[in-house]
Simulated assay, not measured.
Amino acid sequence: MRHETVVTDPTELYRLRDGVYAADLLIVVVAELDLFTWLDRYEREHDDPAGIEQVCGAHHLDPRAADVTITYLVARGLLVRVGDRIVPTRVARDHLVAGSPYDLRAYYASLRERPTCRDLLAVLRSGRPAAWAGAGGQEVWSDRLASPEFAASITAAMDARGAYLGPALAEAIADLPARAVLDVGGGSGIYGSALVERLPDLRVDVFERPPVDDVARTLLATRGHADRVGVVAGDMFAGLPGEYDAHLYSHVLHDWGAGEVRRLLANSAAALPPGGWLVVHDTHIDDERSGPLPVAEYSVLLMHSTPGKCWSVAELRGMFAEAGFDYVECRPTAADRTAVIGRRARR
């Protein structure tokens, strides 16, 4: 059998996995909240569309979860934003509003007992993430990382994801004049491995909490990069080591709420020299908070299982500035991912 040297594009496979909870969220919106009927009635009664604050108040929704939900519905083509107001589209009015002759609400309601639907309704109301992948028990994914078995499992999953994404990221940022990179929350070291493969003179260390640090050492040794990518154990929220001129956060910030993200960026600002580089590699919502749809769908999964979401580039620009970073640009990498680049202010 001839060995293929050209790698096919797995973007649709990433999208299928990452968007697995999005349809269940729409079921909840239709069958439990009846949101489109409420929005239609509110607009007629007030002669003005509702805003997200009114939606949260009427339906007792957590603001983060509501933001993710509205962004997903806009990306799906069921809502449009008009300033700070939200309006059902013609498709939503025709098929998801009470009184329409083509009302599909009962069709969606027939699936309302799906376990993920129950989880998502609880997250919408409380803001607290559900158990990872709907597993039994109340522990969220970050607490379960203390288990060596779970740490090995989740790190292997992120390692598999990064095998295709890592080289694309390395290519996208190869021109940054960095000499030493700290891969914060770098998991298996898959991105550090890609960076040193593309830039042999680069020094990379993965910064990870125990027991993930041991998993990273094992995987780096297995792929033959243990002598080129180091592993430093520590808590990224407690502070970051110096001696680096660039920090990489790949698929890290989306796991955390705004307060934690700001703390991490502040820790990077404290550890990096003036002119040091900051790279946030992830899926990012656009400035208009209207998509892209695959990113909005992935944000639903993150809302379900973590305190985070897919951050928009505009939100990151604002948090960069607060922490003392100048925004540089946003570069595409692969499979709906982008690298948002900042630089430590010299002033």
Rank of each mutant, 00 (worst) to 15 (best):
R2V: 14
E4M: 14
V6R: 11
V6Q: 12
L16F: 13
R17H: 14
Y21D: 12
L26N: 05
V29G: 05
V30E: 10
A31S: 14
F36M: 13
E43S: 14
D47Q: 15
P49V: 09
A50W: 08
G51T: 15
E53N: 10
E53C: 08
C56D: 13
C56Q: 15
D62M: 06
A65G: 06
A66D: 11
I70L: 14
Y72V: 02
L79C: 05
P88Q: 03
D94V: 11
Y102I: 10
A109M: 04
L111H: 15
T116F: 12
T116V: 15
S126M: 03
S126V: 02
R128P: 05
R128Q: 13
W132K: 02
A133S: 12
A133C: 11
A133G: 10
A133H: 12
G137I: 06
G137H: 07
E139N: 09
E139T: 10
R144Y: 07
S147P: 04
M158E: 13
M158W: 13
M158Q: 13
D159P: 03
Y164E: 09
G166I: 04
L169E: 06
R179Y: 12
R179A: 15
D183A: 06
D183R: 03
G185V: 05
G187Y: 03
G187Q: 02
I190M: 11
Y191E: 07
S193C: 14
S193H: 14
D201Q: 12
D205E: 12
F207K: 00
R209H: 15
P211I: 05
V212S: 11
D213W: 03
L219D: 02
L220F: 03
A221D: 13
T222I: 10
G224L: 06
A226E: 14
A226P: 10
D227N: 13
R228D: 08
V229E: 06
V231R: 06
G234L: 06
M236L: 14
H247W: 10
Y249C: 01
S250V: 00
H251Y: 13
V252E: 00
H254T: 01
H254Q: 05
G259D: 13
G259K: 04
G259H: 07
R262Q: 13
A266Q: 10
A266R: 11
N267H: 12
A271F: 00
P273S: 05
P274D: 06
W277Q: 07
H281I: 08
H281R: 03
T283E: 11
D287P: 03
S290W: 01
S290F: 01
P294C: 12
E297Y: 11
S299G: 06
V300G: 09
V300S: 06
L301V: 11
M303R: 02
G308I: 02
C310K: 04
W311K: 00
S312E: 00
E315D: 01
G318Q: 01
A323Q: 03
F325H: 04
D326I: 03
T333H: 03
A334P: 10
A335F: 04
A335L: 07
D336S: 14
D336K: 08
G342R: 00
R344A: 05
A345C: 15
R346T: 14
